[in-house]
């Protein structure tokens, strides 16, 4: 059995390589009898160049920014630093250094290509504007929060987010109406007390 064989996702039994990439049909897992279709790619058995073999820099060689004694083999596409095999991080078509990757993964980065997660303030604002309507007294606390979130984060750029403005505007209008509703109720209550 080849050690690169794709395992059945249900039972981790190795699937026969002869049936990979067949145009039609499927193979049956020898263990769980599931019908499986496998599309395999060369990355399955080809080794990626590992950074463990960074060469020592000669007198005429440029050295790595992070390891002076190592020969520079790449240039960071973001900051332009020379990098040895050990420090170069291939990210798709780009090569980055560790510090640039760390910077791009933070939310403060202007690039959004590498962020691992994101908080959606537009959804939070809309949720806080709509969900408490089920039990109206809660809006006394949530409506000001909605207005705060919308005003505070209205200009925040969100990655892969659609209809942000629409959500923000809807949340703002609802929040404003809820606040106005409470104001009217308080004024009416105060007026009622004065009249009494």
């Amino acid at each position: 059995m080849n050690r690169f064989n794709v395992k059945c996702p249900e039972c981790t039994y190795p699937l026969a390589a002869e049936h990979y990439n067949t145009p039609v049909g499927h193979q049956v897992c020898g263990n769980c009898l599931s019908k499986v279709v496998v599309h395999a790619l060369p990355a399955l058995y080809r080794k990626k160049q590992s950074g463990a073999s960074a060469q020592e820099a000669g007198l005429d060689d440029a050295g790595c920014y992070f390891h002076e004694s190592k020969k520079a083999a790449h240039v960071c596409d973001s900051c332009g630093r020379f990098l040895c095999e050990l420090c170069a991080l291939p990210m798709g078509e780009e090569t980055l250094c560790t510090s640039c990757l760390e910077h791009h993964r933070s939310e403060s980065s202007s690039r959004h290509d590498f962020i691992p997660r994101q908080f959606r303030y537009d959804r939070l604002a809309l949720g806080l504007a709509i969900i408490p309507l089920v039990y109206f007294p809660l809006t006394l606390f949530t409506a000001p929060a909605v207005l705060f979130i919308v005003l505070r984060y209205r200009k925040k750029e969100l990655f892969m987010a659609q209809h942000v403005k629409g959500r923000m505007v809807t949340a703002f209008i609802l929040g404003l109406l809820e606040v106005l509703g409470w104001l009217v109720a308080f004024i009416a209550l105060i007026g009622w007390f004065i009249n009494e």
């Binding site: 059945c8 996702p9 279709v37 790619l41 798709g92």
Partner: peptide, 24 residues
């Protein structure tokens, strides 16, 4: 992967993908 107000992003670079498996 969006759950509530959080979104988590996972990137699969074309040169890293080893296989696509489908089970009926």
């Amino acid at each position: 992967r969006a759950s509530g107000w959080n979104e988590v992003y996972r990137r699969f670079y074309f040169e890293d993908i080893q296989s696509f498996t489908m089970i009926w």
